[in-house]
Design a protein around this nucleic acid. Structure first.
Lengths: 163, 163
DNA sequence: ACTATTTAAGTAACCCGTTACGCAAATGTG
DNA sequence: CACATTTGCGTAACGGGTTACTTAAATAGT
């Protein structure tokens, strides 16, 4: 077999493996979209879905729902706007906000895109061996980090070891 | 509880969750290093370890061992050089290559850094509930993707569904 | 020996996400 | 009502990684 040093690193390799795996999906998805001539980015998927569910949302609402920082959402939304997938209108009750929603173009293209997403989900299922275990494991990490993150835990451990 | 839309997305949220989790570790580690006044970046860890194991390596060798692209390694190495952690000398047998190794400064600082890494590993173990299951699951995904990546599988599924 | 091909590395152009900062609008408080 | 604080969101500066392209050196092949 081939040697994979990140695997060999064991616990210390976890972070980089998560990133590497995520990238493997992202770049592969990107190429897939290109091959079927779809003018969208992989991670717009989550924006499409959340705006399908909620119709109208603000930047901050999306950021909270996805648990990402607001600048991340701003960037995504700006690109999607530039390509005409997002409609945004000033909130009449709070002029700081813009109510975001899917554009006509987005709604129009969605049916086609959805057939690709369905195939993609099946591909992910295959890669997961049709087993939900990885999702459960991710949830455990997410919850534990929410309780106390890496930095807090590491500092606590050092404090306990020292004296 | 709070709602996490990426979790709700199920299979379609996997990629973004992997990235989000990786980032949670990276940025928390970054802050930890800052708090203990360590002048290194989180993902230099893998470079330090692999050069501790192998003494001398080229950019391509590191890229292969970590299964990352060579430009990724070039960038890491350049930053580490700038901070004085990497020694590089032209390979006398092949002038395209540079043999990379840890500098005196790196070797000097390593003992201290290692105490932090040990605490960090324990923190990761806590976050994993002292259970190796997540590592096994990642290995499954890595292997399945190595056999056929997301794009190939998705195209295959579409081909099978169509006719 | 002398081209043709492969390989090592570096660079450019992108996409992703984060923290830090700034500004304007909304809300709270004396 | 006026001043202070909070909230929404846009931008800048970083750090990470990828693919595509280029250059130079090593290796193949006739």
């Amino acid at each position: 077999m081939e040697e994979d040093f990140l695997v060999e690193m064991d616990y210390a390799g976890l972070t980089a493996r998560l990133k590497r795996l995520s990238d493997a999906f992202v770049y592969s998805t990107k190429e897939f979209y290109k091959s079927v001539d779809l003018d969208i980015e992989p991670n717009w998927h989550m924006i499409f879905l959340i705006l399908q569910k909620n119709e109208q949302m603000t930047v901050m609402e999306i950021a909270e729902a996805l648990q990402l920082s607001h600048p991340a959402i701003v960037k995504l939304i700006n690109k999607m706007k530039k390509r005409g997938y997002i409609k945004s209108e000033k909130d009449p009750e709070d002029f700081r906000k813009y109510q975001l929603s899917l554009s006509e173009k987005a709604l129009e293209k969605l049916p086609e895109i959805e057939t690709y997403w369905e195939a993609g989900n099946e591909a992910v299922a295959q890669i997961m061996n049709h087993n939900r275990e990885i999702l459960k494991q991710l949830e455990i990490l997410e919850q534990n980090i929410a309780e106390a993150d890496f930095k807090q835990r590491t500092e606590q451990i050092l404090k306990t070891n020292k004296p």
